[in-house]
Write a protein that binds this DNA or RNA. Sequence first.
DNA 1: CGGATTTGACCCGCGC
DNA 2: GCGCGGGTCAAATCCG
Length: 299
Amino acid sequence: MDDNKGRDPEFSTEPSAWDTLRGGAESDHGVANYLFTSDTESSILGEFGWNLHHPDDGATTEPQRFDRADDLAGTGLRSLDQVAPESTSGRGGPVQGSGSNPSLSSSSSEDPTERSTCSGGKQPEMPSKSKKKGQKRIRQPRFAFMTKSEVDHLEDGYRWRKYGQKAVKNSPFPRSYYRCTNTKCTVKKRVERSSEDPTVVITTYEGQHCHHTIGFPRGGIINHEATFSARQYLSTHPISQFHYPGIQLSKESTASMIHPEQLGLEERKPIASSSESTPRLPTDEGLLGDIVPPGMRSK
DNA sequence: CGGATTTGACCCGCGC
DNA sequence: GCGCGGGTCAAATCCG
């Protein structure tokens, strides 16, 4: 809805972004892409708390972890500018509100961790429409996964507000942009369908929640056990600190596992590459304890 | 009426 | 330098 108009290749038949993903994986900046292969994903997912399966369907997903923006280059989600920790999106308008007042952080989270992860240390407010020029934006860590599902929306225990939708080049399906409704939370996610396989939903999370989940308003549940396990896993597997508990497919979903091979992901970098040894994020200190919902903590 | 969504405009980075 | 494409803003609109 924008510049795309007029030259919108929206319905072109060219390869999709995910085609790029398959073979175009390139981490120009030597950034490590973390991809859970079929070998490890199940265990990791399980321990990770990704109950990416509908209680009835047993749907699964294929997650990929991106520590930095650039890494998404491989996913076709290229050219994701770097967002400075202080400003997830330079323009930080009202909606961006997240940053509105990190220091305000209320109640349960006054600890520094929350500030650092939630607001990313972002400035309380950015003049709208004045993205700091010259300031390279540093993206927050991302975690993407593909889900075979009829529905786009995965219940993950958080509330999201849609703030944009764009036509994706070479794909008949638009990409939707959501951000966490929590004012202190800057987490965002993109949802799009694979142009190649319309049944595949690609969800990319960016940032880390600094608050608790709200549960599943639509009747879903959070797998506390799994999440707890995830905590334990995370505590010993820094790489997995990126934590999104309780992802759940909705009823209509007929999700099933998508194997890397099917997506040509075997061409991607192996899960554990270089920096995995130290996959820690700048803001991960004490993170785990903060992003785990209270109920799970008490466990 | 307030919150969520839609959607056109704008900004920015990157490739050519 | 320019055009393309992605990402975000924000006013308008929708909806409960």
